[in-house]
Design a protein around this nucleic acid. Structure first.
Length: 567
RNA sequence: UGGGCCGUCGCCAAGCGGUAAGGCAACGGGUUUUGAUCCCGUCAUGCGGAGGUUCGAAUCCUCCCGGCCCAGCCA
């Protein structure tokens, strides 16, 4: 925070912004900044994509530049229109706007084809008849150079003819590809005559239908798409660093007057979850989770349904920063971001998750009081609501013990506790069933304790409650980490990530009681259930009330309890 | 000696030759009708290691150690 009140000190500082600062200082790109977010529509976006979105759109915003949304749709066999809709929803929900700049790599198929012809004409690309397997053999290994394809020296005329016939559907899948003619002995594998085009029959492309049977590869498409859109800084993840020489090669060898700069940053790794599209797709397809928006998934849709706000995700992305180092971010980082947001913005309510009936014997049976409860303890502007109080209420089973030491600041047999926003009560009797399980508490209340402390004694504990008569019944879903290993897909010990799924990642409490003011909550609306955590009204359930727990409150009692049990 | 990239607190991360920011976590203490929030305080003589250059090194040089990525007609 700067003392002069300017907000420049709050802008993120990272190596990419340094590069841009230098470019601007040197008047590169005529002082313009233009980025793009280029997902392949083969799945839902996840928190790792959010990092890229915040980076690309954030940089554009802070440098008065532009950021495009572009679907990198060059492999129709993996892509779906459904994903295109979902991705746009997620980017918008995060708060970013590509305005009129929505593009598809497939928009450029014809231009790409013409550039391929140009490479052929320059003797820099050739049609190769090697099978996929042969191509692999010819490529060599990491330490040994490859060898030239026998088709490498075909004439320009023959290459033109063959490539046009590839497009004209004359050849079957896998029979031929178009390759760049670079260097089969290059130490960088990507430069060993990479494939530029492959043949794909029998797939309907979600944008171009059956117009094409040849599809350009990423390495050929990406630099050209960037250049055609006037991108200045092409930001991507680290695994593409080895592709940069090829990115540059393509642009250096075709007639195009724009040459974006590719800059790589490290992808986000979040502990106790997986982030690869392949694994997320498997979790969904194999039914380990309930769809792409399952609240346990690190997808944007999952986090949204879980109750995460867009602001908290953006804040999280700012906190983790952008570097080139490998990282393994703790879940606590994400949780802290959403707690910060919800602590200041979520109205408070009371809900009892594991109900235990309490009968207040000295409270008249037909009496009902509407007690006033502030919606937020630190923000009066959020107003208040009334909470019905009656002779029978529910409290949480965890808030009662027959005997306990003084560290237990809740209800104990023979002792007092305050009902939040209400009276102090004393427990006089415990009713048990035949199995010895507690089924009901008999209590007395002190009518002089509403809004004031009792006279002559201190009551430290405060517990939440709901009126048995006026409470609403609800289902509450508690989520835990999806995996029980910090790096579920670690290849270190040869264990498959499926074996590290946490069997207790979802706990459903079907008979919870929530306060009557929650009757008119809207789907997706978020609340703090006092002393329990932050919850969000599920957006996909209609026949019953379902709340998802977004995150718990910080809990120092848990630690005290552990220490006591350890002795 | 295949090529590329990276090592700053338990996690994330500033730092760009002038003497180790910040956040998360943790640990003390205060306020509190949420064991929440909030507030105050503690938390790297040390920057993967060893040498060297320099008045001065996390920053420059050398060597070493460790980690990640690359052999799709995926992106």
């Amino acid at each position: 925070m700067s003392l002069d009140g300017s907000d420049s000190a709050n802008k993120p500082s990272n190596f990419i912004r340094h590069i841009i600062d230098d470019d601007l200082a040197a008047n590169k790109n005529a002082g313009k900044v233009h980025t793009r977010f280029p997902p392949e529509p083969n799945g839902f976006l996840h928190i790792g994509h959010a990092k890229s979105i915040c980076l690309n759109f954030g940089v554009a915003r802070d440098y008065q530049g532009l950021c495009n949304l572009r679907f990198d749709d060059t492999n129709p066999s993996k892509e779906k229109q459904d994903y295109i809709h979902a991705i746009q929803e997620d980017v918008k929900w995060l708060g970013f706007d590509w305005e009129e700049r929505l593009f598809y790599a497939s928009d450029y198929f014809e231009q790409l084809y013409q550039y391929a012809l140009e490479l052929i004409d320059k003797g820099l690309a050739y049609v190769c008849d090697l099978s996929a397997e042969q191509t692999r053999e010819y490529r060599g290994t990491l330490k040994e150079p490859g060898k030239n394809s026998p088709y490498r020296d075909r004439s320009v005329e023959e290459n033109r003819d063959l490539f046009k016939r590839m497009r004209a559907s004359e050849f079957v899948d896998g029979s031929r590809v178009l390759r760049a003619k670079i260097d089969m002995a290059a130490p960088n594998m990507n430069m060993r005559d990479p494939t530029l085009y492959r043949i794909r029959h029998g797939v309907v492309h979600h944008q171009t239908g059956e117009e094409w049977c040849i599809y350009p590869m990423y390495d050929f498409t990406h630099p050209i798409s960037d250049a055609l859109e006037g991108i200045t800084h092409s930001l991507c993840t680290l695994e593409f660093a080895d592709h940069r020489p090829l990115y540059d090669w393509v642009l250096d060898n075709i007639s195009i007057d724009c040459h974006p700069q590719q800059i790589e940053f490290s992808r986000l790794n979040l502990q106790f979850t997986v982030m690869s599209k392949r694994k997320l797709t498997e979790l969904v397809d194999e039914g380990h989770v309930d769809g792409w928006d399952d609240p346990r998934l690190p997808t944007i849709a999952g986090l949204r349904r879980r109750g995460y706000t867009a602001a908290s995700i953006v804040e999280f992305c700012e906190r983790i920063g952008v570097t080139k180092s490998d990282n393994s971010v703790e879940m606590g980082m994400l949780e802290s971001a959403i707690r910060d947001d919800l602590n200041t913005n979520a109205p408070r309510r009371m809900a009892v998750l594991n109900p235990l009936k309490v009968v207040i014997e000295n409270y008249p049976e037909d009496k009902v009081e509407q007690l006033s409860a502030a919606n937020h303890p630190q923000n009066e502007a959020m107003g208040s609501r009334s909470v019905a109080f009656s002779r029978e209420v529910y409290i949480d089973r965890d808030d009662f013990r027959e005997e306990a030491n003084k560290k237990f600041k809740r209800l104990v047999l023979g002792k007092e506790v305050r009902l939040r926003y209400g009276y102090v009560i004393r427990c006089d009797e415990v009713i048990k069933d035949a199995q010895g399980e507690i089924i009901e508490l008999r209590c007395h209340y002190d009518e002089n304790t509403l809004g004031k402390n009792p006279e002559g004694r201190k009551v430290k504990g405060v517990i939440h409650w709901v009126s048995a008569q006026y409470a609403l019944e609800a289902e509450i879903r508690l989520y835990d980490r999806l995996f029980n290993h910090p790096v579920p897909d670690s290849s270190k010990d040869g264990v498959d990530y499926h074996q590290r799924l946490n069997p207790d990642s979802l706990q459903i409490l079907s008979r919870c009681y929530i306060e009557p003011a929650l009757a008119d909550a809207a789907p997706g609306e978020r609340f703090q259930f006092e002393r329990e955590g932050y919850f969000c009204l599920d957006s996909a359930s209609s026949d019953k009330i379902v709340y998802n727990r977004t995150v718990t409150l910080r809990d120092s009692w848990e630690k005290i309890e552990e220490e006591m049990s350890e002795g």
